[in-house]
Structures are given as C-alpha cells and as structure tokens.
C-alpha cells in the first residue's frame, strides 16, 4: 500500500460515525456513587479526528473507555448510549460480543511509554495472540500487515516483532501500540494521551503518524490529551471537558481561535507562547473539581469563572449548538443572543 498524499481521504466514505448520547458514568465511593461523566452528548463525524482536552480528572479518559464499554470498577456506565456505525450501542454489548468488538471494531491506544505490552513476550507473539483471539485465519497475512504498518511508521517491522517491550524506546512502544490498534482494521480508533511522557520530537512524529494513518485508512479517531498544542496540530474537531461535562465542542480552529466558554478562554490564556512575554500566560485561578467537590446544582465551573452570574449557582447550563459550535454556558448564551440581535439590527439598518 503506497500512500498517496494527494488523496488522503479516499476511504473517508466508509468511516463509521460515533454518537454518544446522555452518557453518565458514576464511580462508587464511600460518599456514594459520584458522576465522573455527566450526561455527555458528543458526535464524532465519520472520518474526522476529534480531540478531547481537559485537566486531569475532567472525565476525558473515562469517556474514552466508554467507547469500548470498558469503564473499570468501581465505575460503571449509569445511563446513556454510545452508538457506533456497524456495531450498534456499545453500552448494550457484553461478554464475547464485546470482546470481539474490542480490537476488531474499536482500536485503543494506551498512554505513551507506559507498559501496555506484556514484558515476557515478544511483540510478534503478542500480535499472534491478538490474531488468535479474533479468529484471524491467515496469521501470515496478519504479520505481513503488522510489518507494513510498522514500516509505515518508520520502523523495521521484522526486528520490532522479534523484540521484547524493554528493548524498545518509548516512542517505539507507542508506535507498536498504534500498530496493534490498527492491525485488525479497526475503523474507530481511540488514543488516550498518545504523546504524554514523550519528548517533543517524538511527540511530533507520533502526531504526524496518527494524522497520516487516519487519512490513509479512513478512520474515525478520538484523541484524548491535556496538551492543547498537540490537539491543534492533529484534530479536526475539539471537545473541551470540565468536571465531567463537555463544555465546548466545535471545529478546532474556531474553538481555539474564538473560544466561547470561559473555561476554554482561560485554558488558552494559560498557554505560554514562544513569542511574546511569558508573563502574559495566565494560570486559571482555583483548582479543578474532584469527584467529591463537584457542585450538585448549577454550573460546575462557576467557582473559577470570571463571568459568574446568579443563575450559574442554581441552573446547570445546557449545551446549545449554534452555527456548528456547541457551548454549555449561561454567559456564552447571552453573548450569542447579543451577537444575534446586533446582526439583526445591522440587517434592518
């Protein structure tokens, strides 16, 4: 398979869409069941890369695991659905059906340089385990595909398959993880912090590979990260999570260029720039909420918000979608109304 950069989205028509609706995940704690993800709606358009950013504990990894119905105890999916084209509602799947869907339909790439590989087996043997688990008849072809994929990512396939995990560097392991997620031709790929703990150069390489393979194979990709820069480079769409909610979602250039939710605005202000004064970067005041400190009513962000209003204390803002941008914020809704009226007035004038 030779990549043709001029026709990057040749498979895009076959990429599956993913629709998350009303998803709520709770964790059992001594204080009762607390929500890590609350009533999340998120649509991944077929053939796009959607980035999810948020601070630690914002629920982004939990959301990622939901795409494989793999929330680990003491957590559980309490409500909602995750519809994947060609697979149905993943939340309803269980047992063997679920096991077969994992790896075959939805590929999952673990955090970089972490131990996502069995230390006692060569990569090749683990690849064969994967093939046998999914009833792959032609294991030779599987190995060939794996070698192609590894070569595609700039590695010597035969040598990597003969290696143990400890013989590979962090970046190499990460690429092996991507290979294992793709080798069964999964069309939905979830990458959980794919570049965390990698150096800048390797980060850039991995992101480029993600983008290329995504385009080449016509995938629908979800990238979880806390690195806004990484997302800007690779994603089409961006979802911002805070306190278990998706507070803003839209095309990545618009969300980053013209953030509407106060949290997104704060997040972008907090990024230090290469050019300009380092003092211009402003950290968000306060701390992100934990499971125990999430307010029961009202907006979850109001404690740290510079545009807090009375209504924020009592009413949780609903996610409103206007011109392709989804924002869940009372103040942002007001802004939007004002813009609309101003635009109308201009029209009449």
């Amino acid at each position: 398979m030779s990549p043709d950069p001029t026709a990057p989205t040749s498979h895009a028509h076959s990429a599956p869409g993913v629709r998350v609706r009303g998803l709520t995940v709770v964790y059992k704690t001594p204080m009762g069941e607390l929500p890590a993800v609350s009533n999340v709606d998120l649509t991944l358009a077929p053939g796009t890369i959607t980035g999810v950013v948020g601070e630690s504990g914002s629920g982004k990894s939990t959301l990622a695991l939901c795409l494989l119905n793999a929330v680990q105890p003491p957590g559980r999916i309490a409500a909602g659905s995750v519809e994947i084209d060609g697979l149905g509602d993943v939340v309803e799947l269980g047992g063997e059906e679920l096991r077969r869907a994992r790896g075959r339909h939805v590929g999952y790439v673990f955090q970089a340089a972490q131990n996502s590989l069995n230390p006692l087996k060569t990569i090749g043997k683990q690849l064969l385990d994967l093939g046998r688990s999914h009833g792959v008849a032609d294991l030779r072809a599987l190995v060939r595909d794996a070698k192609d994929l590894l070569a595609r990512m700039g590695m010597d396939g035969a040598r990597v398959l003969d290696s143990y995990q400890h013989e590979l560097s962090g970046g190499m392991r990460q690429r092996v993880g991507i290979m294992l997620a793709l080798v069964l031709n999964a069309r939905v790929v979830v990458l959980d912090e794919p570049t965390t703990a990698l150096d800048m150069i390797t980060q850039a390489t991995i992101l480029r590979i993600v983008r290329e393979v995504h385009d080449e194979r016509g995938l629908t990709t979800l990238v979880i990260t806390h690195d806004v820069g990484a997302v800007a480079e690779v994603a089409d769409d961006l979802a911002v999570m805070y306190g278990g909610r998706v507070v803003e979602h839209g095309p990545v250039k618009e969300v980053l260029g013209d953030p509407r939710h106060p949290y997104t605005q704060g997040l972008i202000r907090a990024i230090p720039r290469l050019s300009g004064d380092i003092g211009e970067a402003r950290a968000l005041p306060g701390r992100p909420p934990t499971l125990g400190t999430l307010p029961a009513a009202g907006c979850v962000f109001r404690e740290r918000c510079d545009r807090r209003m009375d209504v924020c204390d009592t009413v949780e803002p609903v996610a409103l979608t206007r011109d392709g941008r989804t924002v869940a914020c009372h103040a942002a809704a007001e802004d939007a109304d004002r813009r609309l009226t101003a635009a109308r007035r201009k029209e009449f004038a």
Binding site: G103, Y108, S116, L117, P119, D129, L180
Partner: peptide
C-alpha cells in the same frame, strides 16, 4: 496497564 491493554485489545 498491560493487562487492561490486553483486555481492550479483545484478547
């Protein structure tokens, strides 16, 4: 991690 990873790969 590699045990969870193995499960998520559908082994």
């Amino acid at each position: 991690d590699f045990i969870l990873a193995a499960e998520l790969r559908g082994l």
